[in-house]
Nucleic acid binder design. Sequence first.
RNA 1: CGGGGCGUAGCGCAGUCUGGUAGCGCACUUGACUGGGGGUCAAGUGGUCGUAGGUUCAAAUCCUAUCGCCCCGACCA
Length: 646
Amino acid sequence: MPSWNTPTARRSHEPWKSDGKCDEVEPDSCPAEAQTAQALPPISKKGPLSLDLSGKGAYHPPMRASRLHIVTYREDPADAEVLSHRLMARAGLIFKVSSGLYAYSPMLWKSLKKAQGIVRDELDHAGCLEIQAPILQDRQLWEQSGRWDVYEASGTMFTSTDRRGTTYGLAPTAEEVVTAYARATVKSYKQLPICLYQIHTKFRDEIRPRFGLLRVKEFLMKDAYSFDVSDKALADSYENMRLAYHRIFRRMGLEAFGVDADPGDIGGSGSMEFMLAADSGEDAILIEESSGYAANVEKATSRAAKPAGQDEAPRDMRVEDTPGVRTCDELSAFFPNVPPARMVKTVLFKAIHTDHEEFWAALIRGDQEINEVKLRNHTSGLELKMLSDDEIEAKTGAKQGFAGPIGLSDTFQIVADKTVRGMVNLLCGLNTTDQHALDVNIGRDFPEPTYADFRLAREGEPGPTDGDPLILKRGIEVGHIFQLGTKYSAAMGATFMAENGREQPLVMGCYGIGVSRVVAAAIEQNADEHGVVWPVPLAPFEVAVACLSPKDEELSQVAEDIYTQLGSQGVDVMLDDRKLSPGAKLKDLELLGFPFTVIVGRAFRDEGKVEVRNRREMSSELVAPELVTQQLTTILEDLRVGLSDS
RNA sequence: CGGGGCGUAGCGCAGUCUGGUAGCGCACUUGACUGGGGGUCAAGUGGUCGUAGGUUCAAAUCCUAUCGCCCCGACCA
């Protein structure tokens, strides 16, 4: 008997096929002796979801496709727009329960557990400690940090009330809870640094859930919180986590890149997003290749070209009738010798704060656009809303399209983008319907405003570092790390006794990874016209062994043996024993996207060989059955991307 | 929140305008054949047509309300 055919000691992984005495009887009526320890399979030293993905000694229970509840569809679902959504639905990986709410199939959950395993392993190696916090968090806790109002204003948080009237939020993230835990338990600098994390369900009331698992109301997220003695120590923790993130994504077999980002509702001083490049990505990223600068457009800066004519001597201001001329383009057509770069746009906003509203007039050069995220940060409002036409008329006395810094009522706070500084003889509105002013000069015709950067950086503009043109890419945000500082600890009174004997607020960082989103994004990035192409580390199974003639006992036995061999060598393998026609089975396996498929069929009958297929390359080669296991374990070794010590 | 579209079998759809026995493809079940690209033949299972009310001799179809799902938009002067 060839060595590959040697029966391996099999554990009873498949109780429904057990040889035990209980086979034909109800479990309850099973004789007592059959339930003793001897009747049970030995306990594995490593669990089925071992963190050791090196392949050495890893143990995965063998699995038969006929028992895995694989349900695939030939047609795309009607509501799927993007690739990952279509494929996940067709492969039966997700089941939509309601808008933005999905159940994960056994196969997908297996992938998600692998993703969690990688996250967990890397964070544990990075010195973090896993915890589990409640999802239901009471309102008072969130009021302590001041974020209840923020999330209420943006409508992001689901809320609920218990029978006694206490209001709760369903956690969109868990800074408050973990900070409260640290407040109660961290008393001394001797306990620091510490980083706590959990992998748990998060809730966000998305305005518009879409793209399958990419934007949903309920999802799986890893969130971590670091506590340090100082900003300097925080920087170390942050850097430690940044490196861990790169290792995590690399180990998942994904190419993620970090970009400067706006911290948004989380707050804090610095933040970086981790992106997976994808055309369907909802985030736009500007990249300056020479310097490695990369930033979310919400945050990105660039060098704006200086318009001509800034050295002119100021001329006298004049007012012209401009009936019905509202936009910069229309003005430019009306005054052919005044390009938009010589105009100042005045955009009127309302900044919503916790207890009041402020009116803001934002001035920006006519050829530029406002970045509302930057502007909102400048106003420190919870939300920024453009004024409606009616509001504009009520506040300025002129119809929409004629607002300007001249004679603007003092109910507005005026801020100008830096591009406005130094402009000479500019054109702008003067809050009179059907009129604009020319040769306006700052400081003379209207008061010198304060300046800030709230200009939208655009593709092709010179980058901030080297001045090389910015390139636009789209990406899916899969991770985000923040240097929070003392925002939460100070607000919530989470302090510790420092080495100098003084009480100080904990210095915090927080770090998220959208685990379910990563897996969906992985499919978005790894798929072709045939279906999913799983990266090995996230694949529900690394190898599928398929016999194309399930009725042929000899072929079936060959497949069974290869499957057993692979399993005994720590390969995560599935035996496709389904009674499907060859074509249907092959198509199905391609849709499901296992990295490798071993096909036992014609080639074995003809020349005693089996076919080893590479899903990504869509290539195949004939291999002698006794060599399959060695060959695949070698290839997989390379593809199970490096470990935490790398 | 504004606009548009759609709810008919597990999935994808027709039927609605013009009221009159609820259909097609896929999937599923049984049998036979077939066995390397979603194979063939035969026989089947499965739907109170989203829900509620109304009009009518009669409603998937017309009217009203309501719920759900999808898409687009939410103003750059």
